[in-house]
Amino acid sequence: MIALASARLGRFFRRDSLGLLGAVLLLVLLILGIFGDLLPLGDPNAIGAGPRLGAPSLAFPLGTDDLGRSYLPRVVEGIGVTFLLSAIAVIITAVIGTLLGMAAGYLHGATDHLIARIADILFAFPALLFGLLAAAVIGPGSIAAIVVISTATIPLFIRVVRSVTLSVAEREFVVAAVVSGASTWRVMLVHLLPNILGAAIIQLTYALSVSMIIESALSFLGLGVQPPAASLGSLLRLGSVYLTIAPWLVLAPGLVLAAAIMSINLLGDAIRDALDPLRGRSLK
């Protein structure tokens, strides 16, 4: 299955230049985010290293922020932090969402109802407010941000996985496994899971791009990462205050965030086209 998918993916990239563009862009950003602090860019937290709100120069390629810190290493740090936060949150979403969605779709009855009701409640609760309440209960910081992002993305994940599970569960090989006496766990893990993975991965790329937007919205409301750590969202928030006198403070993180989300979306589209069994053919 995986091999087949990757073969398809390879084929797709050859045909799909946008998907390739997304993949390359994402890779570059990921490398920057992960290994950025190894580069000789300077200390992202050195206050007063330069003038306040200084324009880009040789010494400070992206200018300096309101505390006279070099902006380039901060943006690079922001890439890493944003990716890390979003990735953790989305992995949590994917694991919980897949398990609950599968359970709801396959087990039917009380379990289905219970999970569906939980998803309903989460769906109906205004997402941002739920996040703010959750963040207030846990206390601010990265963990709260992760919880907010996860709770905002889980309900949709559950629904998508549940509906795919419903259709897969009716397929012959699943029915056959049940008839031959396989345990519920075995059916779910061995027979169902691999077949809903495709849909889950597609949903995951959506959740990832949305989570980056949520992270920046949280920063706007003062609930993002704790200073001095920088995320792309917190940099954008700060920058938007100084938009008129130091536009580079918005431009740099803004372009990077846009590139990150766009690359994930493009890649997500490509993966979807490659994995979605219904989308192999198209109308000519």
């Binding site: 946008l18 954008l236 928030r237 918005v250 589209d269």
Partner: peptide, 19 residues
Amino acid sequence: GRLVGALGASVPDFVIGSA
């Protein structure tokens, strides 16, 4: 269409609003 879709979903509303 894909590009527009991907691009539009990648800019937080407060950045557009501030501008």
